[in-house]
């Protein structure tokens, strides 16, 4: 059974159809690249999965339809995401940023927190350990107590990545993790993406514009164009598909 299934999803704002009958799915431990030209609706798909938009059709996590759930409820099922622009909390330390992703797992209540009960402290410590492991995973331990705003952009994007991992998700949505990164930072990212797939067995949907990276890393590619599914399959087939090439490069000008 697939971890996450997008089943005939359609979304319209007024008369404008943004997503038109999209269907695809991702398995556990699979890296699915979601590609398409600008405005194809890739991030919109993520927003539908996250519960920000409410499309028609079904989005199933395992066998449960999650359309209509609130964003925090979707997150509660173990569907984590990263954002195009990181969206971290600049004044908080790296570790505290990671801990925000463990909100649902931390079992403390306000009264216990105000009194700083021993049970609250041990629970905090336990989750700090998990967050530290996520930091270790992306080798950022040295920045643990640094406010995120003081870090360079490339490191910040990695922190966003670590935050998503810290949630111990079942499915991970990556929204252009490599945008704005240097060549070396991209290579680092590629390394960590593969490490997640191979070590954590998480299903990943990965929005990416760097076709070289997609060709090298993705297990499967799903192509969107103007809100429609254009192609789905192995990288070597999809990237050679004339339809896909046309969508990206446009048709040749007339004679």
């Amino acid at each position: 059974m697939s971890e996450l299934t997008i089943d005939k999803v359609t979304l319209a704002f007024g008369g404008l159809t943004v997503l038109n009958d999209i269907s695809f799915s991702v398995e556990a431990g699979e890296l699915l690249a979601l590609i398409g030209p600008n405005g194809a609706g890739k991030t919109t798909v993520f927003n539908c999965i996250s519960g920000i938009y409410r499309p028609s059709g079904a989005i199933r996590f395992r066998d449960r339809d999650i359309v209509g759930l609130k964003p925090y409820e979707v997150a509660g099922l173990g569907i984590a995401r990263t954002f195009q622009h990181g969206e971290l909390y600049g004044r908080m330390s790296v570790l505290d940023n990671l801990l925000t992703a463990r909100h649902l797992r931390i079992r403390t209540n306000v009264i216990g927190e105000i009194l700083r009960l021993p049970s609250t402290r041990s629970e905090e410590r336990r989750h700090r350990d998990v967050a530290n492991q996520a930091l270790h995973f992306v080798e950022l331990e040295r920045y643990r107590d640094t406010p995120v705003a003081d870090l360079p952009y490339g490191v910040q994007k990695l922190v966003g990545f670590a935050r998503a991992i810290a949630a111990e998700p079942n499915v991970l949505l990556l929204d252009e993790p490599s945008a704005g990164l240097t060549r070396e930072e991209r290579e680092d990212f590629a390394h960590y993406i593969l490490k997640i797939r191979d070590q954590l067995n998480i299903g990943m949907i990965w929005i990416e514009h760097d076709m070289q990276m997609v060709a090298d890393l993705a297990d499967r590619i799903h192509v969107l164009d103007y809100g429609k599914s254009l192609a789905d399959g192995r990288p070597e087939d999809v990237l050679r598909d004339p339809e896909v090439i046309r969508a990206y490069l446009g048709t040749q000008a007339g004679p």
Partner: peptide, 20 residues
Amino acid sequence: RTGRAFAAVHGRETVAAALG
């Protein structure tokens, strides 16, 4: 936990919700 949630909501609400 509550204080971190405060900071998250203060930052961006949609992101806070996506974090659970």
